[in-house]
Amino acid sequence: MREEIITSGRMNDKIDPFLNIWHWEIPLYLFLGGLAAGILFFAAFYSIRGKEKEFPSAIEKAPLIVPALLIIGLISLFLDLNHKLYFWRLYTTIRLESPMSWGAWVLMIITPLSFIWAAIHLKKVYPNFKWPFPWLDIVEEFFIKYKKVLAWSMLVSALILGMYTGILLSAFNARPLWNTSILGPLFLVSGLSTGAATNILFAKTHLEKKTFSTIDLALIGIELFLIVHLFMGLLASTQVQIEAANLFLGGPYTAVFWVLVVLIGMIIPAVIEILELWKFKIPLLIPAIMVLFGGVLLRFIITFAGQTSRWLY
């Protein structure tokens, strides 16, 4: 029998028997970041392509919730910090090698952008809305004038933000499950997919609903492809990666991952969306909520499972 034990020291429940440093805050932050990135991406994308008429919900309505999403995301990131008073240290330096630093900076940029975007569309969504101070109208006008620039910067930063939510984890060589280059694209695509799902929820027109459900369908397809790839990659690697993969292939995370994330969060909504495209009358609300649910869980499960995966000595 082989026995490997820590006989003294390190009796710290945040580290042993497995890493337990990140709880709900980080995965929620990752989810919200991805979701916000998805919504902003579509808003910017269609706006740049001049589709304001066709996609009013995606461009005008859905982005209204993004500032809230980002603020809640930032709050959860803040709650995760153990040394909260020093939060500002994030913004006294730029660390190119640190995804955490990137994320902080991207959020720093994208959050004001999302506020501005929301602000300049407020009147479209709520026609009775009036700014309390007249100078705000001037500001609004200014930004509306440069809306293209705004859209472009939003598009780029949304992509970075979406990517970042995956890279944050995949940069950790120390946790074999996370340490795969697929996590970045996977989280990005999942973020876009949840963004599309949110757009379905907000959509009023059939065109909008149909477009986003088609997009979502494609994104789910890519996600499934990436997930298969993820496991193939891990299984083809060394013992520790194989063990990491086994967390989902017979291990403790098997059921929650395959049923809650893949089946409920991807396959069933995809099937419903296909059926809907085939002209069955099913409210698209259902698959959209399922996709969001799956998106949340993907982050939670990958964050938690990754903390239990480790190198062997």
Binding site: W24, F31, I289, L292, F293, L297
Partner: peptide
């Protein structure tokens, strides 16, 4: 967690 996260996420 999923439901909770979603709720928080949406409001």
């Amino acid at each position: 967690l999923g439901i909770g996260g979603m709720t928080i996420g949406l409001g």
